[in-house]
Design a binder for these strands. Structure first.
Length: 576
DNA sequence: GCCGTTTTCGGCCCGACTGTTTTCAGTCG
């Protein structure tokens, strides 16, 4: 089993939990958490770096000690320090930290005073009314603990983070409602929603308004609110009926930019910015930038960045993945925008499992201002999708030629989404592929192959000189299906060697490649096709999610295939 | 445990809200 970056990240976070419970030096704990975060969002596989004997201390936040520990984790899958801590305390103890309201200090009290070692033991003690007798605990805390334990099982099966598209459906009416309240001058959805993360844990709404504005009352009284968690003058938290937590923060106009920066995060980005401020003898908080007592900026985000000597940084980049350094060195990417997109390279029609006709899809693409649309229905092996065989594909090609004759301003590209068979061969013969403008291919079956076999299978498919794009490269479905085992780095390098490209599937359930993988593709020098995989007219609008993910992956217009005109694109589709 | 235009020691981001406090610790973001 290869050790992934996320595995290393997990080991470090667990270790930090235990050190935290033991009351170790908080800065040592921070170093572990910091390392967990950095490794988790690194675009290179650390296991690969170890295999190539690269110097891990080159990674910011990793010193001699952690570099050694990473090597141990890569070799053995675990860390002796963590195993020892688990033995010393209890293997299930860190699970207690997952319960909201319980941090290291309280877990330590539970352990020291009552010998509580697991969630089950905690539940029992709470049910017997013993927890409330502990120092720092009370009846309220005890009932909250019981309530949260009850929720653990529900959330585990559902997946706690909401997909961005689902969050959008909640947010838009809420923002519409809040905007109408008299006195509200500015409103933004901040947090991971603004950073366009693929999922959001909660929603952070920021409002600028005067002191007498009733926005807080109106917010907790909103029709979707099921429960109010906290209610203050400047901050309130509620839970909506669908389970999502929504926080509202109210600030004066003069602080709006500082607050927007603060609440957009990420936390790691904010820390990086504040550290720079500190060196300049400045203090940044959600109310502004301060020199001593005096506020010197805060009205806009741009003002705040300017005070620390930085240009404004796009929200999608704010993950402390190198954007702060890039800003300092004036080499921030000029991120791709939705307006740069000139066409969609992966859509389905009623010829296979799409719900809209070829002609309707073409008209919808025209309305979006696209110059081209690739009609890429499934091939025959995907029988459930009514995939096209050779004969029906030839018929569709004729139909596309006919439509292209009468469509003005939009070119339909003759395409197909070929199924990659287990052997790596494709399920239509080369002679029909020659008549197509674009050939894309995907894995739709046999997700359980070994990493080696899956990787070989995909690379073999790209060996076929007619193939242009490998679609939804990891096969994952957000919150539903893990990626299949595949050496994506090898696939990327193989694609690069062959003049193939990778898709960033813009469907909000997929967003596959993810942000980190996009960044890696760019570093390798691959072009990415942002495509919707639309099965209906509405789905064509998924492009915004794909562009958001691409922006998180630092992609610029030149990194994206479908920002090109058809003439340019044709050139990129020539195989080496 | 990491890091360095404060460079091998001595620092390490900042504030709101809650509950259990009698002046604040713990947790969260």
């Amino acid at each position: 089993m290869p050790v992934h970056n996320s595995d290393i990240s997990e080991v470090f976070n667990r270790t930090a939990d235990y050190l935290d419970i033991k009351g170790e030096n908080p800065f040592r704990i921070r170093a572990y958490r910091n390392a967990a975060r950095i490794i988790g969002s690194l675009s290179r596989s650390v296991a690969d770096m170890v295999a190539h004997e690269e110097d891990l201390t080159k990674i910011q936040g990793i010193g001699q000690d952690l570099a050694g520990k990473i090597k141990e984790i890569v070799k053995t899958g675990t860390l002796p320090l963590l195993e020892q801590l688990k033995r010393e305390l209890s293997p299930e103890l860190s699970a207690l930290m997952e319960i909201p309201g319980l941090g290291p200090k309280r877990v330590k009290v539970l352990y020291d005073e009552m010998g509580i070692r697991s969630v089950d033991e905690l539940r029992q003690a709470a049910e017997e009314g013993k927890v409330r007798t502990l120092p720092g605990f009370g009846a309220k805390t005890e009932s909250v603990i019981l309530e949260e334990i009850g929720k653990i099982k529900e959330t585990k099966k559902g997946g706690l983070r909401l997909k961005l598209a689902v969050a959008e459906q909640v947010v838009e009416p809420l923002v519409g409602y809040l905007k109408k309240i008299a006195g509200v001058k500015e409103i933004d959805v901040a947090g991971s929603y603004r950073r366009r993360r693929e999922t959001v844990g909660d929603l952070d709404i920021l409002v600028a308004c005067g002191q007498s504005c009733p926005v807080m009352d109106k917010f907790v009284g909103y029709e979707d609110v099921e429960k109010t968690l906290s209610r203050g003058k400047t901050r309130s938290s509620v839970v909506f009926r669908n389970g999502i937590q929504v926080d509202l923060r109210v600030v004066p106009e003069a602080s709006y930019g500082a607050a927007l920066l603060y609440f957009t995060g990420s936390k790691a980005h904010n820390i990086a910015i504040r550290k720079i401020a500190q060196k300049k003898k400045l203090k940044i908080n959600e109310y502004g930038v301060f020199r001593g007592e005096k506020r010197i900026a805060g009205r806009t985000e741009k003002d705040v960045y300017k005070q620390v000597g930085l240009p404004w940084i796009e929200p999608e980049l704010r993950e402390d993945r190198g954007e702060v350094e890039a800003a300092q060195e004036k080499r921030l990417p000029r991120l791709v925008r939705l307006e740069d997109i000139r066409g969609d390279l992966h859509v389905h029609t009623t010829w296979s499992d799409g719900r809209s006709s070829l002609e309707d899809m073409a008209e919808a693409a025209k309305r979006l201002g696209y110059e081209y649309l690739a009609v890429s229905d499934h091939s025959k092996h995907v029988t459930v999708a009514h995939g096209l065989d050779e004969k029906r594909l030839s018929q569709q090609i004729k139909e596309i030629d006919r439509l292209n004759g009468k469509l003005k301003g939009l070119r339909l590209l003759k395409s197909i989404e070929l199924d990659i068979l287990e052997s790596g061969s494709l399920d239509l013969p080369d002679r029909v592929l020659e008549d197509l403008d674009l050939v894309i291919c995907s894995v739709h079956s046999k997700f359980n192959l070994s990493r080696e076999k899956q990787t070989e299978r995909i690379i073999r498919a790209m060996d076929n000189p007619h193939v242009h794009i490998f679609c939804h490269p990891t096969g994952r479905l957000i919150n539903e299906r893990r990626p299949y085992e595949v050496d994506l780095e090898r696939v990327m390098n193989a694609a690069k060697e062959r003049g193939c490209h990778l898709e960033l599937n813009a469907h909000p359930d997929r967003l596959d490649l993810d942000d980190v993988e996009c960044k890696r593709a760019k570093e390798i020098g691959l072009k990415v096709a942002i495509a919707t995989d639309a099965h209906s007219l509405d789905d064509l609008r998924f492009m915004r999610f794909g562009v958001g993910q691409a922006r998180r992956g630092w992609l610029e217009p030149e990194d994206v295939l479908n920002t090109k005109s058809w003439e340019e694109l044709e050139g990129f589709l020539k195989r080496y």
